[in-house]
Amino acid sequence: MRPNRSDALTLALSLVLLPAPAALARGDDAPGAIPLFDGQTLANWTPTDFYKAGEVVVEDGAILLKKSEASGGMTGITTSREDLPRIDYELSYRAKRTEGRDFFAAATFPVGETYLTFVNGGWGGSVTGLSSIDGADASENLTGTYHKFENDTWYSFRIRVTDAAIRCWVDDEELVSFDPTGHHLGTRLETRVSQPLGFATWQSGGALKDIVLRPLSPEEVASEAEAADTP
């Protein structure tokens, strides 16, 4: 049975209005979502001023943070945008380690007037958590956990920041749920140049794509506060 002209027109319009697959993967279609990487250039990003940092380039739709040849070297990017929210938001991105055996896309992000770093695979490749809390690194504080990362494998990350909780996921597995109330938050000296928002590698190469920041809705913020108050 042949579709009538009205059905055909409806189908054509629906295909035009559907978000592109890449947009769906990044969450670009979510209300208020802010894509932070256009897949082609380093617009609104600058290579982070680390000592003898590796090269930063865009290839095949990803930002490559090439391994520094310096002993203990870091490579990274830092946003030049000043209009991003500092609280009540969710940051999502995809990343993989291209070489090495340490963190490959540690994200430094704002928490109100201060900052934290979500370390992915530090201290030899598996320690994952927040640095620093009350002066203690992820390897020493209550957020530290162990998660194995394989080279040349893409992982999806999400960081949700509210006054009530800081929560972090890897491939939809929640690894961190932390109530910052009453704690001193801050970053290690090495990553302060990544503020206000940036990514860094340590003795490793990394790749990044699908970087999106989404302001949380009032309902989501209220839900986080309610969950934090529940014994």
Rank of each mutant, 00 (worst) to 15 (best):
N4G: 13
S6I: 15
D7R: 15
L9F: 09
L9H: 12
L11G: 12
L13F: 11
L17S: 15
A20P: 09
A20T: 14
G32T: 08
G32M: 04
G39T: 05
L42T: 05
N44Q: 13
Y51V: 12
K52C: 06
A53G: 10
A53R: 10
V56M: 06
V57P: 02
V58H: 09
V58G: 08
E59Y: 11
D60W: 03
S68V: 03
A70R: 10
S71N: 08
G73M: 01
G73T: 06
S80C: 08
R81S: 12
P85Q: 07
Y89L: 04
Y89I: 08
R94W: 09
A95M: 05
R97E: 05
R97F: 00
R101N: 12
D102S: 10
F103T: 10
A105I: 02
P110Y: 01
P110G: 04
T114A: 06
Y115G: 12
F118P: 02
F118E: 01
G121Y: 07
G125W: 03
T128A: 06
T128V: 08
S132I: 04
D137H: 06
A138N: 11
S139M: 01
E140Q: 14
L142Y: 03
T143M: 02
G144N: 03
Y146I: 10
K148A: 13
C168T: 08
V170R: 09
D172N: 12
D172T: 10
E174W: 00
E174I: 08
T181E: 12
T181W: 02
G182K: 10
E190S: 03
T191G: 06
V193Q: 02
S194N: 15
L197S: 05
W202N: 05
G205P: 07
D210Q: 09
V212A: 11
S217R: 09
E220Q: 13
E220A: 13
V221C: 10
A222H: 00
S223Q: 11
E224I: 05
A227W: 03
P231E: 14
